[in-house]
């Protein structure tokens, strides 16, 4: 069930040693197989077409978030709780399972990474102090290009994303009782609010051609998915459900959108067309499925799934 091609080095990220150490992080082939089987069987019930078999990409079980592909799908970068007090960015090489810290020398919490489509820039959130979150922009090699610091007091940025040509940065920022999507240059200058509204706006993401931004907003009461032009015009609502729809992501061809929804009782992954039509449920798991990100081939999603109490990355095929 678990392809050796995608099998990470066992326990590459394991660091815990305690007086009463357990087998929680050890994993086993049999256990992993049962996890994949469970997810596969559950998924078959959710779609009419046969979906490709899910592949478990990590096995340490620690809490993870925000996986993103880079280098044409050869690598994944994601945030993980190293321990109860620190989350860090990790880099997973799919071909050989190499799993290591993206920034080995960083001691501050880092999360929500995002890459430009050309792979030349990436951005992530970085904890700067008590309840204070900045953004860091790096080049392909990891050299810091810009540090965008938060203001004074409790504040910070969330969910940064880069335009495909890495000319602009979009992100979420709270002030004056609302939380808006902003666009700026990569150094934080020329900041513009996009499609301002009441409530909270978050998780902005560009379409591959850079002509649309999809995002989540509570402007109409609870979190729904919307899309707009890069200048904030032409806002269109794509979902409508009393339970939340969040974290939208455009497919590589720009035709579909994956997102997380609570509409069936807990967090599951759904895919719909770019206009909100043709909704399909992708996961059906007793635990939480969240943080969907498209593989560059457009046929699979990487998802953080909580299965048997453990949080791991799974590569989930979409129905034909």
């Amino acid at each position: 069930m678990r392809s050796s091609k995608y099998a990470p080095v066992a326990d590459a990220a394991s660091v815990s040693v305690g007086a009463f150490a357990t087998d929680a992080n050890a994993g086993s082939v049999g256990h992993g197989a049962s996890i994949a089987l469970a997810l596969c069987c559950l998924m078959l019930g959710a779609t009419t077409a046969t979906a490709a078999e899910p592949q478990q990409l990590t096995r340490d079980g620690r809490q993870k978030s925000s996986p993103v592909f880079r280098d044409g799908g050869k690598e994944l970068v994601y945030a993980e709780f190293t321990d109860a007090a620190l989350f860090q960015l990790r880099r997973l090489v799919l071909a050989d399972g190499t799993n290591e810290l993206l920034h080995a020398k960083s001691t501050s919490a880092e999360f929500e990474p995002a890459w430009s489509a050309d792979g030349e820039r990436y951005v992530f959130c970085k904890l700067r102090g008590v309840l204070s979150i900045g953004m860091t922009v790096c080049d392909r090699q990891g050299a810091v290009l810009n540090e965008i610091l938060p203001g004074g007091g409790f504040c910070g940025y969330r969910s940064p994303a880069l335009s495909p040509d890495h000319s602009r940065l979009i992100f979420s920022y709270a002030e004056r009782g609302t939380q808006q999507i902003y666009s700026s240059q990569l150094n934080g200058e020329d900041r513009k609010a996009l499609a301002e509204s009441t409530g909270l706006n978050n998780w902005p993401s560009y379409s591959p051609d850079g002509r649309s931004i999809v995002f989540g907003s509570s402007r109409d009461g609870n979190f729904e998915i919307y899309r707009m032009q890069p200048d904030g015009s032409d806002v269109r609502r794509l979902t409508d459900h009393p339970l939340q729809d969040i974290r939208p992501r455009f497919s590589p061809d720009g035709q579909r959108i994956a997102f997380t929804s609570h509409r069936d009782g807990n967090a599951e992954i759904y895919v719909m067309n770019g206009d909100g039509s043709n909704l399909q449920r992708i996961t059906q798991n007793e635990g939480r499925d969240d943080y969907a990100e498209w593989h560059p081939d457009g046929k699979r999603l990487v998802v953080v799934s909580e299965i048997e109490g453990k949080h791991d990355l799974y590569l989930v095929g979409l129905p034909d």
Binding site: A85, L131, I133
Partner: peptide
């Protein structure tokens, strides 16, 4: 208690986010 603070476990004190 702090929700997000360098070196601290995440508590419920969510003054931001």
């Amino acid at each position: 208690p702090e929700a997000i603070n360098p070196g601290f476990e995440l508590g419920w004190d969510t003054h931001v986010y």
